[in-house]
């Protein structure tokens, strides 16, 4: 709010260049998505015989029927599974990440530095190579073929930890914590009532990253889950692609329908980014 008053009106040339760059970037990022949208309406044949830029005969309904048939009517269930796994991992992972970030940034925790080094070292190791040992471990724990086998590893986000720490350092003032302590609030209460509120935009960002990463994770659920009813949608779509003559239009439509919940989520989280904006100004 207050920023608007003080800002000098940007010059016309600046405005024009800014818009040109932003729209150019939007075209770059959405151009390929446009191809997915157009191709999802085509028959397999038209995909290869008509221009990729233009729509051909409308095959939306046929492709949707094919999608349901190939997924044995499990498509929406799989989307639901994906939403559940991603949301659970996102919520748990965000809380856990922000807690570490807070613990590292605001407390002299012995071993804190070692934890950070370990997390960084953990990142260096390619995760795909860890999937098989993790699978063996989870068999021992009896977690294989349960939602936890996907949720637990997905909510460990080294990136979220560092991001959490950076955001805590940037937007949680010590005075506020001290004031709360003087009021006699417990540490947990301070964390949940004060810190988390201040971190809303950061948490939304971390949540979104973990959510999408879980959504798109493929190797982990492929190894961990065998029951048809437990599959997330990416594994199901991959299954449609792993044979020689995939039904492209149906797969692409499945991908688009699968992205819808992500878009809804993104728009829903919008509010919190804005809220964060406002609370950032709170002293």
């Amino acid at each position: 709010m207050s920023a608007a008053w003080g800002a000098a009106r940007p010059r016309r040339a600046t405005v024009v260049v800014t818009w040109l760059v932003l729209i150019g970037a939007l075209l770059y990022f959405l151009g390929p998505v446009y191809w997915v949208v157009v191709s999802a309406t085509k028959s397999n044949q038209d995909l290869y015989t008509t221009s990729g830029l233009l729509p051909a005969a409308n095959h939306i309904a046929e492709n949707y029927a094919t999608l349901l048939a190939w997924t044995q009517n499990q498509f929406w269930r799989w989307v639901g599974n994906s939403v559940f796994y991603s949301a659970a991992a996102g919520v748990i992972g965000t809380l856990v990440s922000v807690a570490v970030g807070y613990g590292l940034a605001k407390f002299k925790t012995p071993g804190g530095a070692a934890v950070q080094v370990a997390v960084l070292a953990g990142l260096l190791f390619p995760i795909a190579l860890l999937t098989v040992p993790l699978y063996l471990l989870f068999i021992q724990l009896g977690l294989v073929n349960t939602p936890w086998a996907v949720i637990i590893p997905s909510c460990v986000s080294p990136f979220g930890v560092f991001l959490g720490r950076i955001y805590v350092e940037a937007s949680v003032p010590d005075e506020l914590l001290e004031a709360a302590r003087l009021d006699g609030a417990s540490e947990l209460r301070i964390f949940f009532a004060v810190v988390l509120r201040l971190l809303a935009p950061a948490m939304v960002t971390i949540f979104l990253f973990i959510f999408v990463a879980t959504w798109n994770n493929f190797l982990l659920p492929l190894m961990m889950l065998t029951t048809n009813e437990l599959k997330p949608v990416t594994v199901g779509l991959y299954g449609m692609m792993s044979y020689f003559n995939p039904q492209y239009g149906a797969v692409l439509q499945g991908a688009l329908l699968g992205v819808l919940p992500l878009i809804v989520l993104f728009l829903g989280l919008q509010r919190y980014w804005q809220a964060g904006l406002a609370s950032g100004a709170v002293k």
Binding site: V100, Y102, G112, G122, L130, L134, L136, L137, V156
Partner: peptide
Amino acid sequence: ARTGWMFLSPFVLLFALCFLAPIVVS
């Protein structure tokens, strides 16, 4: 220190399970 570890421990446990243990195996 205790308070710090209270905030660190959930992640550290999960990290040990999902990263450290498989790395040791690997």
